[in-house]
Design a protein around this nucleic acid. Sequence first.
RNA 1: GGAGAGGUGGCCGAGCGGCUGAAGGCAGCUGCCUGCUAAGCAGUUGGUCCCGUAAGGGGCCCCCGGGUUCGAAUCCCGGCCUCUCCGCCA
Length: 424
Amino acid sequence: MLDPKFIKANPDTVKKAVSDKGEKADIDRFIELDEQRRTIIVDVEKLKSDRNSASMEVAGIKKKGGDASEIIARMKLVGDEIASMDNQLRAIEDEINEILLWVPNMPHPSVPVGKTEQDNIEIKKWGEIKAFDFTPRPHWEIGEIIGGLDLAAGANVSGSGFYFLKGPVARLERALINFMIDLHTSEHGFTEAMVPYLVGENAMKGTGQIPKLKDDMYKIENENLYLIPTAEVSLTNMAAGTILPPESLPLKICAFSPCFRKESGSYGKDTRGIIRVHQFHKVELVKIVEPESSYDELELLLANAEKVLQLLKLPYRAKTLCTGDLSFAAAKCYDLELYAPGMESWLEVSSCSNFEDFQARRMNLRYRPEKSGKAIFPHTLNGSGLALPRTVIGILENYQTKNGQVVVPDVLKPYLGGQEMLKG
RNA sequence: GGAGAGGUGGCCGAGCGGCUGAAGGCAGCUGCCUGCUAAGCAGUUGGUCCCGUAAGGGGCCCCCGGGUUCGAAUCCCGGCCUCUCCGCCA
């Protein structure tokens, strides 16, 4: 959520940001409603002030055993008037709040203006794209050869977009999870957490999935609970509505979790294999920091995510997302894409974003920098470190051999009991 | 799931339907004092919204949402959460 005062003071800047992001929040309506709101407030507060002093008078009279029925009768009318104005006011405020929930975050000035992913800016390339002396297979073929990926069984049980990992691939994914969490906790200073996978509507509002992305979220029938699309929701909302004490920042937490996404609106895209699925695992990094340091922290976060790819020796590139590709709540975001030679394409495995105070404001998360000072909204960030299925794809496709087996990356060997090869 | 208890300011904790934005304590801040590692004394310290250039004035906030009333932290209804006991259970 943006600061309403900021919107009032800079309507044109906000409108530009809304359109740069391809959103459609009605800023003019907001301004109009805000004016109506203030007009009513001035009137109703005058009445309330009168009522309050009349109440004092009644109290005084009654204490002396006098008769206050004349004032009481008069105030009854005033009370009715107040009630009706309060109702008007509430209706206006409801509409204002609804608009505010739909106003996206402002892109940081360093974010390139653009419409689609075509306009994202590549900022870095790492690693060599491997030359094979055979035609590299896509992961679904490798998975079949080594007997580790069963899409048919997933469809059988749950429908399309679900899958079973088995044997060597299942173990590979488990190894990757442990490797990533160990790295982030022991090298990068994150505290490990296990988080709720079902969260309330407020949490989803807090991080910005609701209302805009509501249709992409799985909701539990007859309960006000949603399946998390990422551990970001649980982690970032952990302290929602509270004031963090001095010295408590930066807060760095990471968690592995399953992620559930309907992926409505992406039918027909990335349908083969396990590139785009309804359920997948992810190791997520979340930081809550002081506003001044958030952009430095974003760079560090990106480096933390990159480190995973570097240690796995998977070639990747990094991009700065343009305004049009930037998510609703983000002010700035980098994507990491690893190269999958079997598919001959780049796969997004991490998004590292700075939300500035947008999420903190929505969830009323505050921070008191000094013991006696004022509470402020801290900045929140998150990044994948990394998404599992696509990392698995990266390993299967980059480390494949001619006969369809897979070499285990050095850094994962300890996690696979010293095993050298994944095979059927 | 069943039965109780409870949710008050940064924290603890009081609070007859009007004089309570809220006693008292702790913590914080500011002075004074003291030569002993901190004690004592005095003062002070919430948030948010509206009007105002400002000074200042005013509204609202005692878990959340409704209701009763001239007036509600205080009464009624609904919800959420916490604790205790019972049941069930990985």
